[in-house]
């Protein structure tokens, strides 16, 4: 029951409520990332740099989240036979980013804030990042399954393709176009 709630709360949570909670999570995630100097703009890696203005954190995180959601919407239209609501996929996908708060929150602890590159602290941070990303992607996959109800045999491939494509485009925009 608890595992089901932690990995798939979308049997009970969707729609406007999920969008509202998702937006709060997005703002909290962006704020904590800014204060801790932790850039979570990818599902594959993170960056530590505190000399960046708040708008940049907001822009890169919003861009990454938006492209992930857009990828799922397009894949949903391609693979789903049912009519799904955009508010469900947007809300549940935004909420799925909640576990990403773990790493920037951990970085608020002084021992994780500044350290030598050779310190074992970096391995702990990497471990926290891996756990949070796996948790977040599991939530995102369940959000996609519940919101779009895809019945195609290409569901898993479609989800992975959407994630990789949105990842590539967001990284291109963040590192090539954003100042």
């Amino acid at each position: 029951m608890i595992i089901s709630l932690v990995l798939n709360p979308y049997n009970r949570l969707a729609g406007i409520r999920a969008i509202f909670l998702g937006l709060i999570i997005h703002i909290v995630l962006t704020s904590i990332s800014f204060y801790s100097g932790t850039h979570i703009n990818s599902n594959l890696f993170f960056k530590l740099a505190s000399d960046t203005p708040f708008w940049y954190f907001l822009a890169e995180m919003s861009l990454h989240a938006s492209l992930n959601i857009l990828g799922l919407i397009v894949t949903g239209y391609l693979l789903s036979r049912t009519q799904f609501r955009l508010i469900d996929i947007i809300g549940t996908a935004l909420f799925s980013r909640a576990p990403l708060v773990l790493l920037p929150a951990a970085r608020l602890i002084p021992a994780f804030k500044s350290f030598y590159v050779t310190s074992p602290v970096i391995y702990i941070l990497i471990l926290i990042f891996i756990v949070s990303v796996i948790w977040s992607i599991t939530l995102l996959y369940n959000a996609f399954k519940i919101s779009c109800n895809p019945k195609s045999k290409f569901t898993n491939i479609g989800f992975i393709a959407a994630m990789l494509l949105s990842e590539g485009i967001s990284q291109f925009i963040i590192y090539q176009i954003l100042p």
């Binding site: 979308y10 049997n11 969707a14 919101s147």
Partner: peptide
Amino acid sequence: MGLSYPSVRNKLD
């Protein structure tokens, strides 16, 4: 039912 809208719609599907 105390469920989300898409869950109920999936049950109907």
